[in-house]
Structure formats: structure tokens, C-alpha cells
Design a protein around this nucleic acid. Structure first.
Lengths: 339, 339
DNA sequence: GAAATGTGGGAGAGCGCTCTCCGAAACCTT
DNA sequence: AAGGTTTCGGAGAGCGCTCTCCCACATTTC
């Protein structure tokens, strides 16, 4: 606490110059004669000076920090976040962009009502210059709260109506269409889907488009079971599907983990994949390649999207003007062994 | 940015009192007459005042923030952190303790050399009041760097010699002994182990104690294969073990994920578990209960340890004196289906 | 009734830094 | 040589808050 280290003033005295000059050297602004620069740097090293961020922020109104917020409204927060490789990919995408610009990335988690309030308060008080938000649930109030607090914010996934903030997103509808058309083209006529939880941000976009493709070709009924994005829930969903609709010859799951669970269950029951039932996943996460059979899946370029998200925020932060921007990415179908 | 909101001064004017009085109300110190208190609160609500954390920190030398640092020296950082449920458990344990005290938890990740330097710099400049560090690798220089920077620090896992900081740890040796004695008692005489990577903090503590137990009973050779804490590496390790030491009748893995991989591989090869080979894991993570067969494992009370870690730091932070404290937890053997 | 005690509020000095002015010196220009 | 321009360093005014004094007044005590 009372760790009061040396200040600019101390460095100035040590180097025999003024506070202003030391500040200029530290921040590398304007011209300072080379020899004075050297003597200042020496003094800094000699007495072990570190700038005080609080003092700096007070005048610059900047912290040099950006928050990456993982937010959920439901239960089992940590279990969800620290088992789905999706978040790791987001982090992987965001970090380099921020580091490169000397911005300190800070992970914040909002796992409860209370946490969310504390978090918004923290950011309002100047905890970070902006926020990158990855909402796990569709009805998450956090983005709206941040926007209302006037904090520059960029979302992973489209904002709901009225939330005026930047975002990156995947063209989910196009991805689902890709999957549907592939299954149709390979002769499947009895598809079913393991959908996202109703609360998921992307829940119905993927589902509806998938059905539309088949509906347009005369297949009007596509059974749906909701999963919870985990391998286990995929198994359970598949079990239900197999029981209620044994004629099913194709399954489209809303993420790879659930697709993997479906494959596991099918094979355990002696159902051939892809022989009898074809399975398509979503994301193209590491799970897709590790599963056996390797999954055919809709690739979501998560790292690139995350990087873009960080890029948009950084732009908004120093560009100033022009307001929230956004970027939508195109999915690609990756055909492997499960279809 | 130029988001200059209302200040204490504005509230004071609005409420017709002095800056000092508003400050007293906001921070709830000393006596302020009830009616004045009310009028100040009204004024705050009316003009939407939020205290400026930078200004506050500048004088108090406190941020009200604690960093939870995940640090690794190797590759594939995010993949490791966001797939092993272990970290979720740590987060789950730490958060409530901090929230309860109104401390804002901030997750920091040190995934590279550069990140580590930036991070230490950030914390030295007053990014947080203290750090909770979860090192993934034994040779991680971060704890030493933080201690050197004078930051109150508490580790998950014992510090290396000379690092003078608080920590919580599991009695790993006792855990390994528990596993060994259980296997011995159930008649296993040809044990092998799937050990942690040499770089892991707990690598040899578990391994050595396990061997000691068997050595004391005349079994002097215990084959070792190193894994990488993942299911996949467990499979590979088991394959090697089965090839080189087909007589093996028991396997002790350094975490549940590897034990799970071992079980999978054994069963796929038609080797009965626990009939022919018994398997013991470590941690008692969710994976242990989800695996089939359900794993016998050494329970590490991660959440409680994490909570204690946070508690120790908080104490050091406001207690001041007395220096770094520590706490060691006892493991428990949980017998399930795999032995 | 005067002194001692307690209570509630204001004044104002910083915390460590940035950044706008200013002025002194050095360098061109015609 | 006189003026203009550029270069470089210092002075000093805050940024928004906390916190120590200090003072005015109310209450108690002998």
C-alpha cells in the first residue's frame, strides 16, 4: 500500500531537468535533445521510477485498458466458459490485436446480477476505455447497460434492436443454408436438428434458415430438440430424436460439441455415421477434428472475428467520430467424415 | 473519452454543501446529519454523478481491484485454459470471496514473454491492489517478478525456494500416497503412472510419493509416461504404456482428463477397466464423474483452495503486517468404478 | 455560568501527472 | 546585421478526489 515509489519530480531532480521534460521523455513526445534524453533515462533506471497510472488517467481520461467481458444470465457460468473452446478462441483472437497497440487486455466476468451491476459501475468509473462483450445469452441486459453508460462497446454477435453499438457477427443464416443444401445434395430427406438453447443469441437464426431450405424443397417437417451446447446435451438430444423420429437420416447441430455427442450416441446404438445418419456441426472448433468420425461442420472464423471486434473498438477509441461500426463474416462448409 | 461527467464539486453545488461533505456521504464515513445526507443523495441521483476512480486511487493508493492471473510459459495457452475445467473451478472459488468484499476481480492472462512484461508493468503502475496467481508451469518467472515488484501476491501451489509470498496448496504427496495404498490394498502389483509434464508445478511430488509407497513394499520399478493434462495425451500415454509394459495392472494419472483418456483407450483395445487394469485419476473434476467408468480419483478441493487463496490476499491487503501466509489442504480418495 | 466535551460541516492542501503557454537560444533568410 | 523562424526546456495551472485541520455550535459537567 504505502508503496510510494519515486515520482516524476524525483526523476527531474536526479536528472537536473524539469518535470515537464521527464514527462516528454517518458511519453516520447516532441523533441528532446538526445543527451538530455539519455540522462533522463539513466535517472529513471537509477531510481527505479514507474509512472503512476492513476495520476496519468486523471488528466488524460484514458486508462490504456480494454475490457473483454464474458457475460451470462444463467447458471453454471464458469463451467460453461471454461469447457467450451469457443471462448479460448475469442481470447486468442483478441489478445494480439490489443497487445500490439500496447493496450492492456482485462478479462471481466459477469456471472450474476450483482456481478453485472458491479461491473458496469467499475467501467463507468473508468476501469477501462472500452468493452468487448461476448454475451452467452440472448436476453443479456449487459450490452444495453454499457451503451447507456456511454462506454464504447463492441459485441460478438448482433445487438438487439435499439442497442446502438458496434459488433461482429457471422452470417448464421447462410451457414445453416450451407449445411441444409449439403445434406439435400447428398440425398438426405429426413433431417432433424439439435438446436441451440432458446436463450442463445443465435438460436433461431440457424434453425429457421435450415428449415427454410428443406421447406422450399417440399420437406415441411423438421424435428427439433434443444441442446445446451455441451457434448452431453448432444447425446441426450440425439437419444430423444432417435426415439421419437427413428426415420431421421440427417442431423444438423448448432455447435460441434453437440454434434460430437450425437455421433457418439449414434455409434453406441449401432447406427452408422454417416452411413445411416449424417451429422453436421457448427463452428469448426478443435472438437470437430478430434471427434470420430471427424465432423462435417460450418466454419466460423472465431479468431478472425474476435480480432476484428478488437480492431473496431480500437478504431472507435482513437478514431473518435463515425460511431459504431460492424462487420459480418461469411461461413464456409467444411466437409469431413460425418456426412 | 471527453466524457467528462459531473464531479464532486457539481454535486456539492447542487446540494448546497461543501465537497468534503459529499465525499463523506459517498464513502459513508463519519456522521453527517440525516437530512443533509438525503439532500446529497438526491443531488447525486439528479445529476447522475459517478466517482472518478483515477482521482480516488491517486490519493488513496488503492484501486479496489484484485487481479487473478493465469500464467503460462508454453504454447497453446488459451486452448489449455479454456478446456480444462480446473480453471473454471478456481474462478468459481475466487469470485464470491472478492465480490462479497466489494473488490472487483480482474482476470489477466500472461500467455507470452511480452504479455508477462506488460502485465507486471501494468500491475506495478497500480492496475490492482494485489494478485492471485495460478501458474501453469513450474518454471514460470511471473511470481518472482510480482514479488520483486512489491505487489501483494498469493499463489495457487507452493512457491519455489526464495519466492516470499503467500500460497495455498494441496498435500500432493499425501494424495499420491492415498492412490498408491488403495491400489496396493486392492491387489495391484504392477502399477504404472501417467505423470504430469516435467514443467508442471506439481510434476514430481505426486510421482515420487506414488513410487515410494510401492518401493516400500518391494515393487521397485514403476513405468512412467509423461502426459500433457489432456484427454488425448492420456490416450497416447496409455497406448505407449500398453505396448511397452503389457503386464501393467494399474494406472495412476496426474489428472482426471488423462485418466479418462487412459480408460477410453483401454476399453477400445478390449482391456477391461477395472477388471484387468485399474485407473486412478487426480482432482475429482467434473470429468471424473462423467467418464465411463466413473473415475476413482484423488479429490482436490479446488474451489475451497481458491477461496482460501483470495481470503489470504484480502487479509494481507487490509490486515497489513504479518507478511505472507499459507494454507495446505488435505486430499481425499474418492473410490468409484475405475478401480 | 464557565469550562469541558461532543458533533457536524467547511477550507484547503495535496496525490502525481499532462499539457498549454512562454521565453531563451540557435539557426536561417535577405 | 536585423529580423524571422525554428527548436527545446521550464513554469504552472489544473485533473477530481480524500483527509487533516479547524471552527461554529450544541450539549454536558462541576
Amino acid at each position: 500500500m504505502g508503496n510510494r515509489g519515486p515520482t516524476l519530480e524525483d526523476v527531474a531532480r536526479e536528472a537536473g531537468v524539469s518535470r515537464a521534460t521527464v514527462s516528454r521523455v517518458v511519453n516520447g513526445v516532441r523533441n528532446v535533445a538526445p543527451d538530455i534524453q539519455r540522462s533522463v533515462r539513466d535517472a529513471i533506471a537509477r531510481i527505479g521510477y514507474t509512472p503512476n497510472q492513476a495520476a496519468r488517467s486523471l488528466v488524460t481520461r484514458r486508462t490504456g485498458t480494454v475490457a473483454l467481458v464474458l457475460s451470462a444470465t444463467g447458471r453454471a457460468f464458469a463451467a460453461r466458459v471454461f469447457s467450451d473452446p469457443f471462448f479460448g478462441r475469442v481470447v486468442d483472437g483478441v489478445l494480439p490485436v490489443l497487445r500490439e497497440r500496447g493496450i492492456q487486455p482485462v478479462l471481466l466476468v459477469a456471472e450474476s446480477e450483482q456481478a453485472r451491476t458491479q461491473l458496469v459501475e467499475y467501467l463507468r468509473q473508468g476501469g477501462a476505455d472500452g468493452a468487448l462483450v461476448v454475451p452467452l445469452d440472448q436476453d443479456d441486459p449487459l450490452p444495453a447497460m454499457l451503451v447507456a453508460a456511454g462506454l464504447p462497446t463492441v459485441l460478438f454477435g448482433s445487438p438487439r434492436d435499439g442497442e446502438r453499438c458496434g459488433f461482429v457477427d457471422l452470417d448464421n443464416a447462410a451457414g445453416a443454408r450451407l449445411a441444409a443444401e449439403h445434406l439435400w445434395a447428398t440425398g438426405r430427406r429426413r433431417p432433424a436438428t439439435i438446436a441451440a438453447p432458446v436463450t442463445a443469441p443465435t438460436a433461431d437464426e440457424r434453425l429457421d434458415s435450415f428449415r427454410d431450405v428443406f421447406a422450399a424443397r417440399g420437406v415441411t417437417s423438421v424435428p427439433v430438440v434443444r441442446g445446451r451446447f455441451t457434448v452431453d446435451s448432444g447425446r441426450r438430444a440425439m437419444a430423444k430424436l432417435l426415439k421419437d423420429h427413428p426415420e431421421t437420416d440427417a442431423v444438423f447441430a448448432a455447435n460441434d460439441l453437440m454434434a460430437q455427442g450425437a455421433c457418439q450416441y449414434l455409434r453406441e446404438q449401432g447406427v452408422a455415421v454417416p452411413g445411416t445418419v449424417a451429422v453436421v456441426g457448427f463452428d469448426d472448433s478443435v472438437a470437430a477434428r478430434k471427434a470420430r468420425p471427424q465432423l462435417t461442420t460450418v466454419r466460423q472464423p472465431v479468431e478472425r472475428m474476435a480480432a476484428a471486434m478488437a480492431g473496431l473498438l480500437v478504431e472507435e477509441l482513437d478514431g473518435g467520430g463515425s460511431g459504431p461500426a460492424s462487420k459480418v463474416f461469411d461461413p464456409v462448409l467444411v466437409v469431413r467424415e460425418s456426412t
